[in-house]
Design a protein around this nucleic acid. Structure first.
Length: 294
DNA sequence: CAATATACCTGGATGC
DNA sequence: TGCATCCAGGTATATT
């Protein structure tokens, strides 16, 4: 579910409520996520601590605490965070709650339990930046996200451009929905080797990435089946999607039927007319025979 | 090193 | 109101 916009919407929602709250107690469902929840450590470090601010790196949320510790949460596919009165009955798939001293609690709910919760105590917190810069690529909404950097990064890569966009080691935070949408609006076929793109095409990707992600954040994220912001509200960007989930429906730009194929094991939607394999039309008649696909 | 497969887990949609 | 199968926003790990 949550890609960069959904994580950012969650961050912004919590940022209006969480800072300044002192932690009273913690509750755990007893079930682990993709990795075990370090509940004893969480209790030891968080109890009596105070939330200061929340940052985002890639699809990770970094909750910074008064003593310098950092709580790192990844939402996986179905994770949701909410801030609500602690008396509200627990929902199915609630797995962790952090009660603060004003009768509210931060609650983590995750149906599929692909999420991840980790705690970096003060003595380790300085290593976080290093760990993230080693494993996570360029932030699409940051200053380093430029056509020339991307072209340089991709120049020797034969992997399809869609796989490149989704690989968090190169670019942080773009998942399957937004990779599909960005390549459509940029008019680029997802299977083109990343190293083959022109400077103009990288410029289009940068422009469309920023535009798409910002529009999605503005719309409160994309809710396909279960994403909710921290206030419990769904997102509305699904109403603006051009082709994700629209196999066999007409392309909004040219009315050609949208195709769906698998690329790297992920559902890949594209318009064979707006996103041709070759930028220039090859020999007439032959072009239509293989105007799409790998 | 790169591409692919698999595993983690639950639930909704679809087909019989 | 059954049961089997496939699919889903992510990512780490193993395997070719």
């Amino acid at each position: 579910m949550p890609e960069l916009p959904e994580v950012e919407v969650t961050r912004r929602g919590l940022l209006t409520k969480l800072p300044g709250n002192n932690i009273h107690s913690l509750w755990w469902s007893g079930k682990n996520l993709r990795t075990p929840i370090p509940f004893q450590l969480l209790k030891d470090v968080l109890t009596g601590n105070t939330f200061i601010t929340i940052d985002r790196r890639a699809k990770y949320l970094l909750f910074r605490l008064q003593d310098g510790a950092v709580l790192v949460i990844h939402l996986g596919m179905t994770g949701k965070l909410s801030f609500l009165p602690f008396r509200e009955p627990k929902d199915k798939h609630d797995h962790l709650s952090i009660r603060v001293d004003n009768e509210m609690e931060l609650r983590f709910n995750d149906t599929r339990r692909f999420g991840n919760i980790a705690l970096w105590p003060v003595k380790d917190a300085v290593k976080i930046e290093k760990a993230f810069s080693k494993n996570e690529g360029i932030e699409p909404l940051g200053k380093l996200f430029t056509p020339s950097r991307l072209q340089q990064l991709a120049c020797d890569k034969k992997m399809p451009v869609k796989s490149f966009l989704m690989n968090t080691r190169f670019i942080a935070g773009i998942g399957n929905i937004y990779a599909n949408e960005i390549l459509f609006t940029a008019g680029i076929n997802p299977w083109i080797p990343a190293g083959d793109l022109s400077g103009k095409q990288w410029a289009d990707i940068v422009k469309q990435s920023i535009h798409t992600l910002q529009q999605a954040i503005h719309a409160g994220g994309t809710t396909i089946s279960d994403f909710l912001g921290s206030n419990g509200q769904p997102g509305y960007f699904q109403l603006q999607l051009n082709l994700y989930g629209k196999k066999n429906r007409p392309c909004p730009r040219c009315a050609t039927i949208i195709l769906k194929e698998s690329l790297g094991g992920r559902a890949t939607f594209f318009c064979p007319t707006c996103q041709p394999v070759k930028t220039k039309q090859p020999i007439m008649g032959f072009a239509t025979l293989r105007s799409h696909g790998p």
